[in-house]
Write a protein that binds this DNA or RNA. Structure first.
Lengths: 138, 138
DNA sequence: TAAGACATTGCAACGATGTTGCAAAATAAG
DNA sequence: CTTATTTTGCAACATCGTTGCAATGTCTTA
């Protein structure tokens, strides 16, 4: 079941604005992940920096996108799966960060393995980030 | 085989200075991970901000400490195991980030599981970060 | 379609974080 | 002890992200 841009925004009870449509479209087109800087450079001077920050924040809160932890400490965002709802993310898939081209992939086929924690530790979320070379940079 | 502070620095061909000794000692004492801010507040006005940044950079390059990717996008550092040498890190253990107290633990017992990658993808490093509640925050 | 209520945007200013160049000070080598 | 090399501290700067507020745009209801 696929939704259009506007439908996705409406479903999350968000007003439909130019910036939100444009930014959400970027995520849909790129099936990788995007950093704030990517969005800012791709959209040129069309939107204010602040607008992009706030739009990303809103999307994360509404469960449309999620953040990806990376070894190089740059925040990246990617589209959530349908299972995610506002305030409750369920993105247990593995992320792959290519050292060559810098692209971040969501490896949906691979799920994060369950790790055994010491006594008294409770897990709410597991992030797996694999770094290496992707199939385009060989 | 355990080395003293000075021996560790010498082994990495680093001059022995007050700031390096003090910062390395912090890592040895805390068996968790430290962020730049932790070090800055713990050492007070003793060292310049810049000195701390450069010292951490140097330690990473020499293979004394390594960075930990976190979901909250704050860079943290932890001591490397003996297997690490300058330019070649081998820290495949799992990290645990407590949402309660913010402490980062290195779970040495647990090793990062091997993940199956799609054809053409090569892995050089795997980071696993588990978030949740630690045994002190229950 | 028009008007009012509400949400979003852009601007400016600010704080936190991290980097660079250069002179002074500390460390290492002879 | 003296000289050469590193390292430190300072200042200035670049980047990243946040906040308050007025102006603009979107939604709702009639």
């Amino acid at each position: 079941m696929k939704f259009g841009i506007n439908e996705t925004l409406k479903k999350s009870q968000l007003s439909i604005t130019d910036s939100r449509k444009k930014i959400l479209e970027m995520f849909v087109r790129s099936n990788g992940a995007l950093a704030h800087a990517d969005i800012e450079s791709q959209s040129g001077v069309e939107f204010d920096r602040v607008t992009i920050y706030r739009t990303l924040q809103t999307f994360v809160e509404k469960g449309i996108i999620h953040t990806i932890p990376t070894a190089d400490n740059a925040v990246r965002y990617a589209l959530c799966k349908d299972a995610c709802s506002a305030g409750h993310h369920h993105d247990d898939h593995v992320h792959f960060l290519c050292d060559g081209c810098g692209t971040t992939y969501c490896l949906d086929q691979v799920t994060a393995p369950q790790v055994m924690l010491p006594k008294g530790f409770t897990s709410t979320r597991t992030d797996v980030v694999v770094s290496g070379i992707c199939n385009k940079c060989v």
